[in-house]
Structures are given as structure tokens and as C-alpha cells.
Design a protein around this nucleic acid. Sequence first.
DNA 1: TTTTATTGATTGACCAGTCAATCAACGCGG
DNA 2: CCGCGTTGATTGACTGGTCAATCAATAAAA
Lengths: 192, 192
Amino acid sequence: MRKRARQTTRKTELINAAIQTIARSGTLDVTVADIARQAGMSPALAHHYFGSKDQMFLSTMREILRRYGLIVREAVSAADGPRARLLAVLDASLGPEHFDADTVGAWLTFYALAQQNEEAARLLRVYHRRLRSNLLVDLRPLLGVRAVEVAETLGALIDGVYLRQALSDSAPAMLLKLPRDYLLGILGSKEA
Amino acid sequence: MRKRARQTTRKTELINAAIQTIARSGTLDVTVADIARQAGMSPALAHHYFGSKDQMFLSTMREILRRYGLIVREAVSAADGPRARLLAVLDASLGPEHFDADTVGAWLTFYALAQQNEEAARLLRVYHRRLRSNLLVDLRPLLGVRAVEVAETLGALIDGVYLRQALSDSAPAMLLKLPRDYLLGILGSKEA
DNA sequence: TTTTATTGATTGACCAGTCAATCAACGCGG
DNA sequence: CCGCGTTGATTGACTGGTCAATCAATAAAA
């Protein structure tokens, strides 16, 4: 048991180091040595735990996805009613936990990775579907058939906001409220 | 003069080869040798013309941006009235010329590059500003102060659609009509 | 002839992954 | 409580391969 715990902490340390290192350099070209150094251990140890660079990246991606799912689930369960839950999903998706420079950098880089690596693409599709279904659950009772289109639009909008945030051209605050305002606009006009 | 012409064609050949090669492999990890081979010449010649790999990539990016600007300007000048011009900008931005697998692949990859390379980030910001201003020109007379928010939303939405297209999860047709429907929804409700 | 185009060969750097060797903790029989 | 063997943690050194960039040499053009 002690053994397993140690292994887990080491892996987690490497994953955190990977997120930081990837975001800081903005590429997947980061070397295993870079990540290991960031985590304060030798490159050989990283291989010992993950087997290959690709496996390390995929684990990192899974971890980011896991954290995202956790936060969303928490936020949704704390909200009451469809409208509040929808806003909770948006807030959680664009919350500071995912929107810090590190995570955004890593996130963007994974999109690039997804073009090469089928497993990476699969993980990204999982995220898309999860977001979509989270939105649809509460959009359907409010909008009926139009829910699908609105859900797709919100999904694309969130991703676009991420993308632009990574370049930090516009003011961040402005970008963050875009999906929320879109949703409120839709809900408001439907209420009438 | 002859000299310049030859140099230009060689450079263009390399740029086209770069677009194809990047898109096909889905990464910036393509080697100069790969690109040169695709263009039917030796790697050494590619260095002769561009000096470095980075310069070659940046030239490629500028070329893609130039083509985009060209198409948009053409489409806009052919349209009549603010509403038609807005739709023209959207259609041109998501048109098949930029939406084929090759260009989308290269585009996405450049977003990743922009995190490392300041010049790449600058070029992407140029594109953002150009799109924004293209939209604002015709949105302002229709929407007044709200034009800014709508322009930002459309920009983010387009980028998001690109991103999702690159993963081709949803049906392409569905994705493509999202920005258009959003704009029509805004304009429709304002007309009232 | 002078300049430009073009290439094959080479170099120097870098990096993922391997391996053999230490090191530290733990368990266990005496 | 003490050697001692087992097992996982950890590392430094090394390898095989790749790639950007350079260079010297040749062909073609001006």
C-alpha cells in the first residue's frame, strides 16, 4: 500500500510538472528531461513510471479532463433549477481553475496533439460529448428542439473563448462573459 | 528581375508544400526535409531561400492570412448592404477555401506555434483584429453599442467551429451554420 | 567571368528510451 | 534487536537515431 501511494504521488508530481512545462513553453516539444527536471527528478524515473512520453502526455490529458469533470459536477449539484445549472456549467467551464495560463496552454496544445494521436482525439471527443450532454439536460426542457443547436453553439463558443484567451488579445473579462450573455439572450427571448 | 521571379516561385512552391505537409501530419514537427521533398527539391535549398525553419513557417502563415484577406475582401465587395456584407464575411471565413483539411490542420497548428513564437502570435492577432473590424463596420449601424459584443462573440464562435471541425465530431454542415444562425438571430430580434 | 541555383555530404546538437548500478525501506528469521 | 535478502526507487551514463543548419563543390545563367 505504501508502495502504491508513493507511485501515485510520483506520477501526480510528474503530471503537474508536465502541465506547467507544456504551458510555459507552449509546445508538445517539451522534453521528458524538462518535465522531469521541473518535477525535481531524473528523466529515467519519468520513463520508469510512464513507459513512454506519449503515455505521459495522455495521462496528463486525462488528469485535466478529470479535474474539469469534478469541478463541473460539483458546481451543477450545488445549483437549483435548469437555468441556474446551465449558468453553473458555463462558470465552471470557464472558471479560473481551467482558465489559468498553465491549463489553457496545455489544453490548446492537446488540440494540436489530437491531430496526430487517436487516443488524444478520443479524449477530446469525450470532453465535447460531456459538455454537450451537461448542457442538453437543462436546455431541452427550456428550449425543446432548439436545444441541440444552442448546446453546439455554446460548446464552440467556449472553445473559441479559450483560444482567444490563450492569445490574450481582448480583455479577459470581456471574453469570459460572452457565452453567459449568449445563453441569457436565448433564454430571455424564449421566455417572452 | 528574372532572378526575383525565380526566387518567388521557389518560395511559393515551398510554402504550398509546407501547408500540405503540415496539414497531412497534423503537427509542426514536420521536418524541413519532408517539406523540401514534397516540393521536389533538396532540404539545403529550402534553407537557402528561407534561412531558417521558423522563417519558413512564418512565411507560410503570412501566406495563409493573405489568401484569407483576399477572399474576404472579394466576397464583401460583391455584397450589397450591411446585412449581406456580414453574411459574406461569415461565409468567406468558413468557406471551403479555408475549411479544407489541409488549411484547417495548418491553422490549428499555428495557434499552438503562437504560444512560443511572438511573431506568430502577432500574425494571429492581426487576423483577429481584421475579422473584428470587418464585422464591426456593418454591425455598428445595425446594433449600435452592442456591436462590439456581437463581433467578439462571432469571432470566438468561428474559431470554436474551426477547432471542432478539426476533430470532426459533429456533422460539418451543422457546425458551419452555427455562426450564421447566431447572427441572424441577433439581427432578427433587433429588427423588431 | 561573375553571380546565382542546387545539391550531397557532413556536422553538431538534442533527445527518447535503455541499462546497469546504487540506495533506502521493509520484512523476517535468528 | 540485528544482520540480511528482497523489492521498489532512483540515477548517471550511454545509445541509436533524427534533424536543422552549414559547406564545399558543381551546374547553369547572365
